[in-house]
Amino acid sequence: MKIKMTVLLICFFVIGLISWQQPDLKASIERGQKVYETYCLGCHQSDGSGVPRLNPPLSKTTYVTGDKKKLITVVLAGLDTEIEINGEVYNNVMAPHDFLKDQEIADVLTYVRNSFGNKAAAITPADVKNVRASLTKK
């Protein structure tokens, strides 16, 4: 009985946490979409489908839904090496976007990780701050 109560309590706590976080996530995604439209859409397209052999797609790839640090690094440092996604090679240059604020990068990546069929954990400004610090140290 006691165990049941604890489980129930934990459940309530988790649900509460999620519903408390949900508006934050929604707001971050909304802000992120604006950042996407200004800085990303021109190359990666409205639906994140990219351009064959030039600009990589942002769906169905672990570059986007995988390791947060790797993804944040792409935005901060840009990408000027050949990458292969699902058997296709992409060659265009992405400039560093380190001029964006931690919050903007967190928002846009949270948007991308939760759009175009993606479902991955949100990225926080603190995550971005840490990666930025580790990059400037180098």
């Binding site: 397209q45 639906d47 489908s49 990219g50 351009v51 064959p52 030039l54 797609p57």
Partner: peptide, 9 residues
């Protein structure tokens, strides 16, 4: 008419 979705280019 989208680069990734066009049938042929």
């Amino acid at each position: 008419k989208e680069p990734a979705k066009a049938t042929y280019r």
